[in-house]
Computed example of a mutant assay.
Amino acid sequence: MALHVLHYLHHGHAQWGVVANGAITPIPGEFRSTAEFIEANPIERLFLPRGLTIPESEVQWLSPVTANQQFICQGANYRQHMIESGMDPDVKKFNMIFTKATSCIVPADSPVVKPNGVQFLDYEIELGLVLKRDITSRESVTEENLHDYIAGAVIVNDYSARDIQIPQMQFYKGKSYRTFGPVGPYLCLLEKQDIPKLKELVLTLTVNGTVRQNDSTAGLVYGPVETLTELSAVHDLHAGDLLATGTPSGCALSIPSPEKQRAAAQLPEAEKWRLFLKMQEDRPQYLRAGDLVEAHIVSCDGAINLGVQRNVIVDEAA
Protein backbone atom coordinates (compact mmCIF):
# COMPACT_ATOMS: atom_id res chain seq x y z
CA MET A 1 0.00 0.00 0.00
CA ALA A 2 1.31 3.46 -0.91
CA LEU A 3 2.14 5.77 2.00
CA HIS A 4 2.18 9.55 1.72
CA VAL A 5 4.91 11.47 3.53
CA LEU A 6 5.36 15.21 3.95
CA HIS A 7 8.54 17.16 4.66
CA TYR A 8 7.48 20.30 6.49
CA LEU A 9 8.37 23.18 8.77
CA HIS A 10 6.53 23.46 12.10
CA HIS A 11 7.40 26.08 14.71
CA GLY A 12 10.66 26.69 12.87
CA HIS A 13 11.67 23.02 12.94
CA ALA A 14 12.03 20.83 9.84
CA GLN A 15 10.31 17.46 10.25
CA TRP A 16 8.91 14.52 8.30
CA GLY A 17 5.50 12.97 8.88
CA VAL A 18 2.94 10.54 7.53
CA VAL A 19 -0.07 12.31 6.00
CA ALA A 20 -3.63 11.00 6.05
CA ASN A 21 -6.94 12.87 5.85
CA GLY A 22 -5.34 16.27 6.32
CA ALA A 23 -3.44 15.29 9.47
CA ILE A 24 0.27 14.68 9.93
CA THR A 25 1.76 12.13 12.32
CA PRO A 26 5.37 13.25 12.91
CA ILE A 27 8.14 10.70 12.34
CA PRO A 28 10.78 10.82 15.11
CA GLY A 29 14.32 11.72 14.11
CA GLU A 30 16.47 14.36 12.45
CA PHE A 31 17.17 13.79 8.76
CA ARG A 32 19.42 16.23 6.88
CA SER A 33 18.69 14.75 3.48
CA THR A 34 16.13 12.71 1.62
CA ALA A 35 18.66 9.89 1.60
CA GLU A 36 18.92 9.89 5.40
CA PHE A 37 15.15 9.83 5.74
CA ILE A 38 14.67 6.96 3.28
CA GLU A 39 17.49 4.86 4.70
CA ALA A 40 16.23 5.27 8.27
CA ASN A 41 12.54 4.74 7.52
CA PRO A 42 11.64 1.65 5.51
CA ILE A 43 8.01 1.91 4.49
CA GLU A 44 7.10 -1.12 6.62
CA ARG A 45 7.97 0.83 9.79
CA LEU A 46 5.70 3.73 8.95
CA PHE A 47 2.34 2.00 8.56
CA LEU A 48 1.51 2.31 12.26
CA PRO A 49 2.33 5.93 13.09
CA ARG A 50 1.93 6.83 16.73
CA GLY A 51 1.60 10.02 18.67
CA LEU A 52 -0.25 13.29 18.40
CA THR A 53 -1.16 14.57 14.97
CA ILE A 54 -0.75 18.04 13.48
CA PRO A 55 -3.26 19.59 11.06
CA GLU A 56 -1.55 19.92 7.69
CA SER A 57 -2.97 23.43 7.44
CA GLU A 58 -0.71 24.51 10.32
CA VAL A 59 2.61 23.62 8.69
CA GLN A 60 4.77 25.05 5.92
CA TRP A 61 5.60 22.67 3.08
CA LEU A 62 9.22 21.83 2.30
CA SER A 63 10.46 19.91 -0.71
CA PRO A 64 10.58 16.15 -0.06
CA VAL A 65 13.76 16.08 -2.16
CA THR A 66 16.49 18.06 -0.43
CA ALA A 67 18.97 20.20 -2.33
CA ASN A 68 21.88 17.89 -1.47
CA GLN A 69 20.56 15.20 -3.84
CA GLN A 70 21.02 14.88 -7.61
CA PHE A 71 18.31 16.18 -9.96
CA ILE A 72 18.38 14.13 -13.17
CA CYS A 73 15.88 14.59 -16.00
CA GLN A 74 14.65 12.85 -19.13
CA GLY A 75 13.70 14.94 -22.14
CA ALA A 76 11.19 14.35 -24.95
CA ASN A 77 10.00 11.12 -23.33
CA TYR A 78 6.32 11.07 -24.37
CA ARG A 79 5.49 10.33 -28.00
CA GLN A 80 3.25 13.36 -28.55
CA HIS A 81 5.72 15.66 -26.82
CA MET A 82 8.40 14.44 -29.21
CA ILE A 83 6.17 15.37 -32.13
CA GLU A 84 5.40 18.85 -30.79
CA SER A 85 9.16 19.30 -30.17
CA GLY A 86 9.88 18.70 -33.84
CA MET A 87 11.17 15.12 -33.41
CA ASP A 88 10.11 11.97 -35.20
CA PRO A 89 9.41 9.39 -32.45
CA ASP A 90 10.00 6.59 -34.94
CA VAL A 91 13.49 7.87 -35.69
CA LYS A 92 14.71 9.04 -32.27
CA LYS A 93 16.33 6.00 -30.67
CA PHE A 94 18.08 7.53 -27.68
CA ASN A 95 17.11 8.43 -24.14
CA MET A 96 17.71 12.17 -23.68
CA ILE A 97 19.27 12.84 -20.26
CA PHE A 98 20.18 16.16 -18.65
CA THR A 99 20.39 17.67 -15.17
CA LYS A 100 18.96 20.65 -13.33
CA ALA A 101 20.76 22.57 -10.60
CA THR A 102 19.50 21.45 -7.21
CA SER A 103 19.43 25.11 -6.15
CA CYS A 104 16.25 25.40 -8.27
CA ILE A 105 14.36 22.98 -5.97
CA VAL A 106 11.59 24.67 -3.96
CA PRO A 107 8.45 23.54 -2.11
CA ALA A 108 5.35 22.71 -4.14
CA ASP A 109 3.51 25.93 -3.24
CA SER A 110 6.39 28.34 -3.93
CA PRO A 111 6.11 31.31 -6.26
CA VAL A 112 8.07 30.79 -9.48
CA VAL A 113 10.24 33.76 -10.34
CA LYS A 114 10.30 34.79 -14.01
CA PRO A 115 13.84 36.17 -14.40
CA ASN A 116 14.47 39.57 -15.88
CA GLY A 117 15.52 39.06 -19.47
CA VAL A 118 13.58 35.81 -19.88
CA GLN A 119 10.65 36.25 -22.24
CA PHE A 120 9.38 32.71 -22.81
CA LEU A 121 8.76 30.90 -19.51
CA ASP A 122 7.27 27.42 -19.96
CA TYR A 123 5.84 24.71 -17.70
CA GLU A 124 6.44 20.92 -17.75
CA ILE A 125 4.59 18.61 -15.36
CA GLU A 126 6.59 15.44 -14.71
CA LEU A 127 6.48 12.30 -12.62
CA GLY A 128 9.52 12.28 -10.35
CA LEU A 129 10.97 9.04 -9.00
CA VAL A 130 13.05 9.06 -5.80
CA LEU A 131 15.74 6.41 -5.53
CA LYS A 132 15.77 3.90 -2.68
CA ARG A 133 19.46 3.00 -2.72
CA ASP A 134 22.86 3.82 -4.17
CA ILE A 135 23.78 2.59 -7.65
CA THR A 136 27.55 2.71 -8.12
CA SER A 137 28.17 0.16 -10.86
CA ARG A 138 26.48 -1.20 -13.97
CA GLU A 139 23.26 -3.00 -13.01
CA SER A 140 20.41 -4.73 -14.79
CA VAL A 141 17.13 -3.21 -13.59
CA THR A 142 14.02 -5.23 -14.47
CA GLU A 143 10.29 -4.98 -13.88
CA GLU A 144 10.72 -7.70 -11.26
CA ASN A 145 13.37 -5.88 -9.21
CA LEU A 146 12.40 -2.25 -9.87
CA HIS A 147 11.00 -1.99 -6.33
CA ASP A 148 14.55 -2.44 -5.01
CA TYR A 149 15.57 0.83 -6.70
CA ILE A 150 12.58 3.17 -6.33
CA ALA A 151 11.49 4.44 -2.93
CA GLY A 152 8.62 6.58 -4.11
CA ALA A 153 7.13 9.19 -6.42
CA VAL A 154 6.69 12.98 -6.42
CA ILE A 155 5.35 15.73 -8.67
CA VAL A 156 7.99 17.79 -10.46
CA ASN A 157 7.46 20.88 -12.59
CA ASP A 158 10.42 21.46 -14.88
CA TYR A 159 9.99 25.18 -15.54
CA SER A 160 12.05 26.25 -18.54
CA ALA A 161 13.26 29.52 -20.06
CA ARG A 162 12.88 28.56 -23.71
CA ASP A 163 14.72 31.61 -25.05
CA ILE A 164 17.79 30.45 -23.10
CA GLN A 165 17.39 26.69 -23.51
CA ILE A 166 16.83 26.54 -27.28
CA PRO A 167 18.70 29.36 -29.10
CA GLN A 168 21.65 29.18 -26.70
CA MET A 169 21.54 25.35 -26.51
CA GLN A 170 21.67 25.72 -22.73
CA PHE A 171 19.44 23.04 -21.20
CA TYR A 172 21.12 23.29 -17.80
CA LYS A 173 21.06 27.08 -17.64
CA GLY A 174 17.61 27.49 -19.16
CA LYS A 175 16.06 25.03 -16.70
CA SER A 176 18.03 25.81 -13.54
CA TYR A 177 17.07 29.32 -12.51
CA ARG A 178 16.15 29.50 -8.84
CA THR A 179 12.55 28.33 -8.21
CA PHE A 180 12.41 26.43 -11.55
CA GLY A 181 12.08 23.05 -9.80
CA PRO A 182 9.08 22.74 -7.45
CA VAL A 183 8.90 19.24 -5.96
CA GLY A 184 6.08 17.64 -3.95
CA PRO A 185 4.08 18.30 -1.92
CA TYR A 186 4.14 14.61 -0.99
CA LEU A 187 6.65 11.83 -1.32
CA CYS A 188 4.52 8.77 -1.98
CA LEU A 189 6.47 5.76 -0.67
CA LEU A 190 5.75 2.58 -2.60
CA GLU A 191 5.67 -1.11 -1.80
CA LYS A 192 6.48 -3.78 -4.37
CA GLN A 193 2.82 -4.26 -5.32
CA ASP A 194 2.45 -0.51 -5.97
CA ILE A 195 5.19 -0.31 -8.61
CA PRO A 196 2.97 -1.40 -11.56
CA LYS A 197 0.76 1.64 -10.90
CA LEU A 198 3.63 3.85 -12.08
CA LYS A 199 2.51 2.94 -15.61
CA GLU A 200 -1.05 4.21 -15.10
CA LEU A 201 -0.68 7.59 -13.44
CA VAL A 202 -2.59 10.54 -14.89
CA LEU A 203 -0.72 13.84 -15.14
CA THR A 204 -2.75 17.06 -15.39
CA LEU A 205 -1.50 20.65 -15.50
CA THR A 206 -3.68 23.76 -15.65
CA VAL A 207 -2.88 27.44 -16.08
CA ASN A 208 -5.48 29.76 -14.58
CA GLY A 209 -7.89 26.81 -14.51
CA THR A 210 -7.46 25.83 -18.17
CA VAL A 211 -6.04 22.37 -18.87
CA ARG A 212 -2.78 22.58 -20.80
CA GLN A 213 -1.35 19.09 -20.24
CA ASN A 214 -3.20 15.83 -19.63
CA ASP A 215 -1.74 12.39 -20.27
CA SER A 216 -0.92 9.03 -18.70
CA THR A 217 2.47 7.58 -17.83
CA ALA A 218 1.46 4.70 -20.10
CA GLY A 219 2.80 7.02 -22.81
CA LEU A 220 6.37 7.06 -21.51
CA VAL A 221 8.85 5.99 -24.17
CA TYR A 222 11.78 5.14 -21.89
CA GLY A 223 10.53 3.90 -18.53
CA PRO A 224 12.44 3.64 -15.25
CA VAL A 225 13.70 0.12 -15.99
CA GLU A 226 15.51 1.14 -19.19
CA THR A 227 16.59 4.50 -17.78
CA LEU A 228 18.08 3.28 -14.50
CA THR A 229 19.87 0.45 -16.32
CA GLU A 230 21.36 2.96 -18.75
CA LEU A 231 22.31 5.49 -16.07
CA SER A 232 23.94 2.82 -13.93
CA ALA A 233 26.58 2.45 -16.64
CA VAL A 234 27.27 6.19 -16.76
CA HIS A 235 27.66 7.61 -13.25
CA ASP A 236 26.88 7.05 -9.60
CA LEU A 237 23.35 7.49 -8.29
CA HIS A 238 22.40 7.70 -4.64
CA ALA A 239 19.46 7.04 -2.37
CA GLY A 240 17.20 10.11 -2.35
CA ASP A 241 18.25 11.28 -5.83
CA LEU A 242 15.46 12.49 -8.11
CA LEU A 243 14.73 11.26 -11.64
CA ALA A 244 12.20 13.44 -13.50
CA THR A 245 10.78 11.24 -16.26
CA GLY A 246 9.74 13.77 -18.89
CA THR A 247 6.65 15.81 -19.71
CA PRO A 248 3.59 15.14 -21.89
CA SER A 249 2.50 17.28 -24.82
CA GLY A 250 0.87 20.65 -24.30
CA CYS A 251 3.81 22.89 -23.47
CA ALA A 252 3.91 26.48 -24.66
CA LEU A 253 6.99 25.81 -26.76
CA SER A 254 6.44 25.72 -30.52
CA ILE A 255 9.08 24.08 -32.72
CA PRO A 256 9.16 24.53 -36.52
CA SER A 257 8.23 21.54 -38.65
CA PRO A 258 11.10 19.40 -40.00
CA GLU A 259 10.61 21.03 -43.41
CA LYS A 260 10.94 24.52 -41.94
CA GLN A 261 13.94 23.43 -39.89
CA ARG A 262 15.69 22.20 -43.04
CA ALA A 263 14.95 25.52 -44.75
CA ALA A 264 16.15 27.47 -41.70
CA ALA A 265 19.40 25.52 -41.69
CA GLN A 266 20.35 27.38 -44.87
CA LEU A 267 19.94 30.77 -43.19
CA PRO A 268 22.58 32.70 -41.25
CA GLU A 269 22.58 31.70 -37.58
CA ALA A 270 21.26 35.06 -36.33
CA GLU A 271 18.36 35.02 -38.80
CA LYS A 272 17.43 31.43 -37.93
CA TRP A 273 17.06 32.26 -34.25
CA ARG A 274 15.31 35.56 -34.97
CA LEU A 275 12.61 33.60 -36.78
CA PHE A 276 12.42 31.06 -33.96
CA LEU A 277 11.90 33.77 -31.33
CA LYS A 278 9.32 35.47 -33.56
CA MET A 279 7.38 32.19 -33.68
CA GLN A 280 7.37 32.05 -29.86
CA GLU A 281 6.03 35.60 -29.63
CA ASP A 282 2.83 34.35 -31.24
CA ARG A 283 2.28 31.78 -28.46
CA PRO A 284 -0.02 33.17 -25.72
CA GLN A 285 0.56 30.00 -23.69
CA TYR A 286 3.85 31.28 -22.25
CA LEU A 287 3.65 32.20 -18.58
CA ARG A 288 3.32 35.74 -17.28
CA ALA A 289 3.34 37.31 -13.82
CA GLY A 290 0.09 36.54 -12.02
CA ASP A 291 -0.55 33.20 -13.74
CA LEU A 292 -1.48 30.30 -11.46
CA VAL A 293 -0.05 26.92 -12.47
CA GLU A 294 -1.53 23.82 -10.85
CA ALA A 295 -0.20 20.29 -11.32
CA HIS A 296 -1.47 17.00 -9.97
CA ILE A 297 -0.72 13.32 -10.51
CA VAL A 298 -3.01 10.50 -9.43
CA SER A 299 -3.45 6.80 -10.19
CA CYS A 300 -6.64 5.57 -11.81
CA ASP A 301 -7.77 3.95 -8.57
CA GLY A 302 -6.80 6.94 -6.41
CA ALA A 303 -4.42 4.88 -4.28
CA ILE A 304 -1.52 7.07 -5.38
CA ASN A 305 -2.33 10.75 -5.13
CA LEU A 306 0.70 13.01 -5.15
CA GLY A 307 -1.25 16.09 -4.13
CA VAL A 308 -1.43 19.39 -5.98
CA GLN A 309 1.33 21.85 -6.77
CA ARG A 310 0.25 25.49 -6.93
CA ASN A 311 2.71 28.05 -8.24
CA VAL A 312 2.01 31.72 -8.88
CA ILE A 313 4.34 33.30 -11.45
CA VAL A 314 6.02 36.48 -10.24
CA ASP A 315 8.47 38.85 -11.91
CA GLU A 316 11.99 39.04 -10.59
CA ALA A 317 12.56 42.06 -8.39
CA ALA A 318 14.43 44.81 -10.17
Score class of each variant (00 low, 15 high):
residue 256 P to D: 06
residue 55 P to E: 11
residue 148 D to F: 00
residue 234 V to K: 01
residue 213 Q to D: 10
residue 195 I to P: 11
residue 66 T to N: 07
residue 250 G to W: 03
residue 14 A to R: 13
residue 40 A to S: 11
residue 14 A to N: 06
residue 230 E to V: 09
residue 235 H to D: 10
residue 188 C to I: 12
residue 208 N to L: 14
residue 94 F to P: 03
residue 56 E to M: 12
residue 127 L to F: 06
residue 23 A to V: 13
residue 147 H to L: 04
residue 137 S to H: 15
residue 112 V to G: 11
residue 152 G to W: 02
residue 207 V to T: 01
residue 282 D to N: 15
residue 149 Y to R: 03
residue 17 G to K: 06
residue 266 Q to R: 12
residue 263 A to N: 02
residue 17 G to R: 00
residue 117 G to M: 12
residue 53 T to S: 09
residue 136 T to M: 09
residue 47 F to T: 10
residue 188 C to H: 08
residue 122 D to Q: 12
residue 298 V to H: 03
residue 142 T to M: 07
residue 131 L to W: 02
residue 303 A to S: 13
residue 233 A to N: 14
residue 216 S to A: 03
residue 28 P to C: 14
residue 67 A to E: 04
residue 136 T to V: 14
residue 125 I to L: 03
residue 244 A to H: 00
residue 166 I to K: 08
residue 253 L to P: 09
residue 170 Q to K: 08
residue 121 L to F: 07
residue 41 N to L: 08
residue 73 C to Q: 06
residue 184 G to E: 01
residue 256 P to V: 02
residue 118 V to M: 11
residue 226 E to A: 15
residue 28 P to R: 01
residue 312 V to R: 15
residue 213 Q to I: 05
residue 201 L to F: 02
residue 308 V to C: 10
residue 186 Y to S: 05
residue 296 H to A: 08
residue 39 E to C: 14
residue 101 A to G: 14
residue 16 W to H: 10
residue 87 M to L: 15
residue 290 G to H: 03
residue 314 V to I: 12
residue 192 K to M: 05
residue 202 V to Y: 00
